[in-house]
Amino acid sequence: MNLTKHWAAQLDDYAIDVGWSPGGELLAAASAAGTLRVYSASDGALRHELPGHAAGANCLAFAPTPPLLASGGQDGTVKLWDAGSGQHLKTSELGRGWVEHLAWRPAAENRPTPLLAAACGRRLTLLDLEGSVRHAFSEAAKTISALAWDPKGGAIAEAHFGGIRIWDADDFLLQKSLPYANGIHALAWSPDGRWLVSGNQDPSVHLWIPAEDIELHMSGYEGKVRHLSFDPTSRWLATSGGRDACVWDCAGAGPEGREPAMLPHDAPVCAVSFQGSHGLLATGSSDGTVMLWSPERAQPLRATVRMPSAAARLSWSPGDQFLAIGSEKGAVYVLKCEA
């Protein structure tokens, strides 16, 4: 395994989000202060610096139709940008809350028009490519704390303190309500659509098989679980929640009764991300260490790099060749990963 620095750049503040364009040509990064930067993935050249959100940015997401880029901020807006030309296209005002979560509907052949799910405060809204509201769902009981699309794109799950609601993305009806009597920090849907998982404040992870009304509860964490990631086979679920990244085996009946693989760090784990089509897991801890793992191997650790500050975001490029790291001190690193 060969992990090398490809390029690096510096933002004006904490790297609150990073994201690759669908073809992997561009990397966008949002700073907590609010500016967006678009880099050329091949050499790190700064292509555009966009004003973003004056009150602070929270998240960004490239649309499946390049080069459209969406961003969400503390000003309660979603902004759409042409990441190719650097043009601001549209501002959608969603309310007084923060727009903290954005997620594009997974592309599918029978659905040519992408939809953007945006959570602002307690309300989930679906926007179209022009930034117009397609549907605004009823408000959740508490502020929405995570979003996850069903991988086939038929439904979207929103989490808040107290539970999860799953909405049909075509007729906008409530498919299911999954109560959970605590705070939820993260949601993940397994790529095969079978498992819906929450990372919780209490601290635990809770797994549902919504289709079968089955739920499992895995506790024993040191701290709240804020990060979840499934591997592309849907078997391995990586979670934060302590000094070890914890990997559950979700094959068959699920992780209940199985010991998870514990992948050790020297400091609390603050980011976990599986590759999109291969089996490598990247984990970051608050001391600035980033490690790569093959969880199914007897000797799972594959590589270790140390950064000057902790990884706030880890994001694999489409095709899994590059790993983008956005740090707490605002540095963006792109590492090249060769087997």
């Binding site: 004006d12 904490y14 907590a32 929270n58 923060w98 508490k142 502020t143 704390s145 705070g183 707490e328």
Partner: peptide
């Protein structure tokens, strides 16, 4: 925004809005 951790008992309630805002305030260089 109150998060009632335990059946609405005020002794176990925390302010969810503060958790969120304080968490965001930590995300600064």
């Amino acid at each position: 925004e109150l998060f009632e951790m335990n059946n609405g008992c005020i002794c176990c309630s925390v302010r969810g809005d503060l958790i969120r805002i304080l968490g965001r305030l930590l995300k600064r260089k």
